[in-house]
Design a protein around this nucleic acid. Structure first.
Length: 386
DNA sequence: AACACGGGGGC
DNA sequence: GCCCCAGTGTT
């Protein structure tokens, strides 16, 4: 018979204490090794928690190590360069995270003298720290009695309690958070919250059937008792992606590539990309445009050849880009090359389609590799020319 | 409450 | 091809 944590609307203290012991014991024995784990450094906790938002542990580890090497303390980070931070984040996704981190770092330095606050409310007021992350930092770094409910905990707890609410809804999350709060022990708050999370990550999984046979808390689990593991958690349908066609233009001139910087807001904010335009255009049309292009002529640049590259796809959470691409190799039409004749104040090329070359510049391949974050959406082409 | 916001890995 | 991931900010 299942041991109930709540009976007749009331917490069953004895069972709750047994649950806490089982979970803690399991966690302390089985927890995975992570570079930020079991180090008392709220800055590390914060960096890791931000990186772990919607991102797997294995992906995060190398990013985390590079990050703390370059920015060992929150004070170092507060002085960080945007372009450098973006480079450190390249490929991790959700780039507003790192932008918000710098804002938060400055606030921690100015308002809290470089020490992260320990109160949930104070943590939540920092940019990029929401309900989950505040609870995680408060409990892991400071042993505060606060819940930390992420996707793992939602899965574990809907199963344990048999909650059939849609976990995408705020209502369900609120119920679960409330439930977790009542389960919190008086000590080992960080381990308890991480135990719940770890359980969801390694045993109480969705993609694969959960490994209930070795679960430390299966005796408290309603889904286990009634064999509802496959039915829980309930999650609403994912949003449909909208499709966008794009033509990518990869201009090369000797050792240089033409890149442009994306807007500071919106998708892939501030990252670099190859110029691209809406829709798919044919090679003949492209040739015609390029031959008439005034600025190319002014720079004594002519098209040496055009190669159609392989189509590729970039999938985001809400959009899909269907990409076609041309590599356009340019040459100097005049005399022995003196390098590209582009002056400091005039390093823009303009095609009739204005957006194509906006915010762009020529950059030597070597610099691109070292210093520029190009959106992974273009990785097939980056590989082709870098 | 709904949507914007990435990229990789598992099945 | 679909789903998921140690979520948050904006509208």
């Amino acid at each position: 018979m299942r041991r109930k944590l709540i009976e007749n609307q009331k917490p069953n203290r004895k069972n709750i204490e047994a649950f806490q012991r089982s979970l803690l014991q399991w966690y302390q024995k089985n927890k995975r090794t992570m570079p930020w784990r079991d180090i008392e450094n709220p800055y590390y906790t914060w960096v890791s928690e931000i990186m772990l938002q919607q991102t797997r542990v294995d992906t995060v580890i190398p990013y985390f190590l590079r990050f703390i090497e370059k920015y060992p303390t929150v004070k170092d980070l507060a002085k960080g360069e945007d372009e450098d931070l973006l480079k450190l984040w390249e490929g991790l996704g959700y780039y507003s995270r790192v932008k918000n981190m710098k804002i938060a770092a400055r606030e921690v330095v100015e308002k809290y003298d470089g020490v992260f606050p320990k109160e949930r409310k104070a943590l939540e007021s920092l940019k990029g720290i929401g309900e989950y992350t505040a609870g995680a930092i408060a409990s892991i770094a400071y042993e505060q009695k606060e819940p930390a409910v992420d996707g793992n905990v939602l899965r574990v707890m809907t199963r344990i309690t048999g909650n059939h609410g849609d976990i995408k809804l705020g209502k369900t999350k609120k119920e679960i958070t409330h439930g977790v709060r009542k389960l919190l022990p008086e000590e080992n708050l960080g381990d308890f919250n991480q135990g719940l999370i770890e359980l969801g990550a390694v045993l109480c999984t969705t993609a694969k059937a959960p490994d209930c046979e070795i679960c430390p808390v299966s005796e408290f689990c309603l889904a286990f008792e009634k064999n509802l593991q496959g039915a829980l958690p309930v999650k609403g349908k994912a949003m449909k992606k909208r499709l966008e066609k794009k033509t990518v233009l990869i201009f090369t001139y000797k050792e240089q590539l033409f890149l442009r910087k994306r807007e500071e807001r919106g998708l892939l904010a501030g990252l670099w990309e190859f110029p691209n335009i809406k829709g798919h255009i044919k090679e003949e049309a492209l040739k015609e445009i390029l031959e008439k292009e005034q600025h190319l002529a002014e720079e004594n640049l002519t098209v040496e050849n055009i190669t159609r590259l392989e189509d590729s796809k970039a999938v985001f959470s809400h959009i899909q880009w269907n990409l076609m691409a041309y590599q356009v190799n340019l040459k100097s039409s005049e005399g022995p090359p003196e390098g590209l004749r582009i002056k400091e104040d005039k390093n823009y090329l303009e095609l009739p389609v204005e957006e194509v070359m906006d915010n762009g510049r020529w950059i030597p391949r070597e610099e691109v590799r070292k210093d520029y974050s190009i959106a992974s959406a273009f990785k097939a082409y980056r590989k082709e020319v870098l």
